[in-house]
């Protein structure tokens, strides 16, 4: 059966659909968080080299991976919005940005917390940490540009262009930082051991899925708010039960 995607790309339809989807994603994220944290803290064995400190990896790694992934998804939505002029895609992009920035920040913070017992310093100019820091800057640039343009249409289009340039640049930046790092022979500690215990892997994957579902739930919630804000003059909004109350 063919699905008419454009039907779901209208804000008024999507508002309802997203409202129905949010609880599902939120509850499954919560359950997976509990399961994942249980596996990470009680099932996964203590690491021989890093003792208990390695357990921060269960938050750090999912946050890092998701923060990069969300940037690409955001740039994808932004490009859709720019090319097809679909307002919902642009709203989705701006709804994803704060979650991505939060995860990038979490990744840096947990990286610092992990670095102290591991390397004896809160911050090491490791290639991955540095790339993550630059990714955070890119997120902040996107949010700042969007926030400083009053006209929502121009804000969407300008920040979409920035997101696309950023995503083209990310591989170049990553490569240049790698290059810089090997040139200076900085700390090159591997985050993940070559052989992970099965329980560690399970904990990691569960946490990754949990963060993913959380990101979807939160951005759907946020996109609902954005739709309401942008469409506050539209007829269908004034007919909503929650607005009438």
């Amino acid at each position: 059966m063919a699905i008419n995607w454009f039907k779901y790309s209208s804000p008024s339809t999507f508002y309802g659909v997203a409202g129905k989807m949010v609880p599902w994603f939120a509850w499954s994220a919560a359950i997976l968080f509990v399961a994942g944290l249980y596996i990470s803290f009680f099932v996964a064995p203590t690491d021989v080299q890093q003792s208990e400190a390695y357990r921060i990896m269960f938050i750090h790694v999912p946050a890092s991976i998701l923060s990069m992934f969300i940037y690409l998804v955001m740039a994808g939505y932004a490009a859709l919005g720019l090319i097809f002029n679909t307002r919902l895609s642009s709203m989705m992009a701006s709804a994803l940005a704060p979650t991505g920035a939060l995860l990038a920040f979490l990744s840096l913070w947990t990286g610092a917390l992990w670095g102290k017992p591991m390397w004896g310093a809160w911050w090491v100019w490791d290639a991955r940490l540095t790339s993550e820091l630059i990714l955070l800057f890119l997120y902040l640039g996107f949010i700042a540009l969007h926030a400083s343009i009053d006209d929502p249409r121009r804000a969407d289009r300008a920040s979409a262009l920035l997101a696309i340039i950023g995503s083209v640049n990310v591989p170049i930046i990553y490569f240049s930082v790698q290059w810089w790092n090997t040139l200076h022979q900085g700390a090159s500690v591997k985050f993940t051991g070559t052989s992970m215990h099965v329980a560690m892997q399970q904990g990691m994957y569960t946490m990754m899925l949990a963060v993913w579902l959380y990101a979807i739930a939160v951005s759907l919630l946020r996109v609902r708010c954005i739709i309401l804000e942008r469409e506050c003059k539209a007829q269908w909004v004034s007919e909503l039960v929650e607005v009438r109350r």
Partner: peptide
């Protein structure tokens, strides 16, 4: 071009552009 005519454009343009210039700095 992106920050044309915006309030506080000067600081904003640095925020947008500096991260993108990192490869040039490195090489």
């Amino acid at each position: 071009a992106l920050t044309l005519g915006l309030r506080g454009g000067g600081a904003l343009v640095s925020l947008l552009v500096l991260p993108l210039c990192i490869p040039v700095l490195v090489f």
